[in-house]
């Protein structure tokens, strides 16, 4: 393997790591918002029930 190929391989590894973790970042954000909304709805429904 020559220098150019090793450089390309190294850049590829770093790119894959960044890509996977950035996708993960996005997914965590999406799920956090969704879960937050679900939990808020559940909480407000619970609060409504206790007031009756």
């Amino acid at each position: 393997m020559n220098f150019g190929e090793s450089l390309l391989s190294a850049v590829f590894v770093v790119l894959v790591v960044f890509s996977v973790l950035v996708i993960l970042w996005g997914l965590i954000r999406i799920f956090s918002v969704l879960i937050g909304a679900i939990e808020d709805r559940g909480k407000s429904a619970g609060d409504g029930g206790s007031g009756v």
């Binding site: 090793s6 391989s9 190294a10 850049v11 590894v13 770093v14 790591v17 960044f18 973790l21 950035v22 993960l24 970042w25 965590i28 954000r29 956090s32």
Partner: peptide, 18 residues
């Protein structure tokens, strides 16, 4: 979750050592 970027950046040494 933005911490993930620092976790990714800290793999930089792998590329250099390779």
């Amino acid at each position: 979750p933005s911490s993930l970027l620092m976790g990714a950046g800290a793999q930089f040494g792998i590329a250099i050592a390779f």
